[in-house]
């Protein structure tokens, strides 16, 4: 009887403590990255390569997705707005939803699955093939040489990608709204401009995407660094990166939205 109870508690407790230990390690890892960041920012070429890898190669998927999301928003929004005779505020609908929410959030989700998973797999394989251990043998700190540049590459790329996503989405909304559905071009842009505030809407979107950039990059490099050095371990870590990133992005989005757009 006692044995069964002990078993039960240990079965519940073990994953919990494991999770807390992992979270603690992640925090320690984050501090270590920050401490070793000056090297990757002084030798900017290292970070440059990672911006190319995480940012430039993600541009295509971000731009195409943004265009289609904007076009769908315009079609769906028009359906509803035209019933109330408010179809001229289609631009407001498209711009506000992209700049405030969809640009940062969908951009970050795409970034996590396109670049985050690649970063995790790369670092995980480096660990599995003992490249990280070899670096340590040569007195090169792998956190400073491998992890920090990838982290900063992701952090720098994310806001730029989110801005591109929003801009392309608004362009897609313009294509559908003005060119296809025949709304007035002047009222489309001027109503949008009157309703969207630069500091309150655009800058808050940029701040959001910066937060998401830090979260996704940290999760990606951490999962790679923490991965068991086997083929299975690396594949598991890659999956975990995408899943955890998606959950963290959405939870963080709720918290940030509650802070930024409450009331007013």
């Amino acid at each position: 009887m006692v044995n069964v109870l002990v078993n039960l508690f240990s079965r519940i407790g073990a994953p919990l403590t494991r999770g807390i230990v992992k979270l603690g390690f992640a925090c320690r890892f984050f501090i270590a990255i920050l401490r070793h960041s000056p090297v990757s920012l002084v030798r900017f070429r290292l970070t440059m390569r990672e911006i190319w890898f995480a940012g430039v190669l993600s541009v295509l998927i971000i731009v195409v997705s943004g265009l289609f999301v904007g076009m769908v928003l315009a079609l769906q929004g028009y359906e509803t707005l035209v019933r109330f005779g408010a179809s001229s505020s289609l631009g407001v609908l498209v711009a506000l939803s992209l700049v405030r929410e969809l640009g940062p959030v969908v951009g970050a989700l795409l970034f996590a699955s396109r670049a985050g998973s690649a970063i995790t797999a790369e670092i995980g394989l480096m660990k599995a093939t003992e490249q990280l251990a070899a670096m340590e043998m040569m007195a090169v700190n792998p956190v400073a040489r491998v992890v920090a540049p990838r982290f900063w590459g992701g952090v720098i790329s994310m806001p730029l990608l989110a801005a591109m996503f929003s801009a392309m989405g608004i362009f897609g909304g313009y294509l559908i709204g003005v060119q296809l559905l025949g709304l007035d071009e002047g009222s489309f842009w001027s109503q949008m401009q009157a309703a969207v505030d630069f500091r309150l809407d655009v800058m808050n979107g940029v701040i959001k995407s910066a937060f998401f950039g830090v979260a996704v990059s940290l999760i990606a490099v951490f999962e790679g660094y923490d991965a068991p050095p086997t083929a299975e371990g690396v594949s598991g870590a890659t999956t975990r990166t995408v899943v955890t990133s998606a959950l963290v992005i959405l939870a963080l989005d709720f918290v940030l939205t509650a802070f930024m757009f409450r009331g007013v």
């Binding site: 911006i51 190319w52 940012g55 430039v56 541009v59 711009a95 700049v99 790329s157 806001p159 730029l160 990608l161 801005a163 591109m164 929003s166 801009a167 392309m168 608004i170 842009w189 949008m192 401009q193 009157a194 969207v196 505030d197 630069f198 500091r199 809407d201 655009v202 940029v206």
Partner: peptide, 19 residues
């Protein structure tokens, strides 16, 4: 990439929003 990102932000600042 940096130029494209800056251009997107500029587009959002000048064409989409107002102060």
């Amino acid at each position: 990439f940096a130029v494209a990102g800056a251009a997107a932000l500029l587009f959002l600042a000048l064409k989409v929003s107002s102060q």
